[in-house]
Amino acid sequence: MDRKVALAICFVFGVVMFIQYFSGSSLARQVNQSILEYWQIVFAFTLVVGIVGVVRTNVQRINKRDDVFFRIVTLAGIIIMPVVALIWGIKADTPFMWMFENIQAPMQATVFALLAFFVASASFRGFRARSVQATVLLVSASIILLSRSALGGILADEIPQFAEWMRNYPSMSARRAILIGIGLGSITTSLRVILGIERTWLGGRR
């Protein structure tokens, strides 16, 4: 029963949002604005649901004595941020901002910076000219790297120029083809979702 209701809601919202796109009437604009507001609010709740899910999982694992210390650290982080925000607010120079700037942002950026090392390692161990295609890939990457270093311009002015041409034409054309493919795929999938042919998002039994 609820599957049918969900499919019907999906159909109605899909059709309404499709039709309003082509209408400039004030009613259409109003309907559009309301639906978009609903969409944002529901989405915000999904984020909260995700957070509750993480807390639940951590508590369950602590009860099972699994990685207790690290899970307590995670839970402490989850609790501290809302508490400091509640007491001192989220403006500049508040403990909330301080924690973001001195704990979260530096660590997150450093985790991402680790990738520099793995990219270096991958370049050494996996970037091999095993076939013609792999050689084309390797040469293109090398030209870009050389062109965006100071040496590229020093060796020859043509290196950065050729790299720019390669990016703007052959590389761009492949990316454009991928984009067109994704565009056509999105249209088909959206139609299938609205018409109830594509139902995997319902989950559970078919």
């Binding site: 993480v54 989850i78 941020m81």
Partner: peptide, 13 residues
């Protein structure tokens, strides 16, 4: 672990 916790707390706020 601290990063995960703080990030989640931040998003919630």
């Amino acid at each position: 672990s601290l990063l995960i916790g703080v990030s989640i707390g931040y998003t919630l706020v």
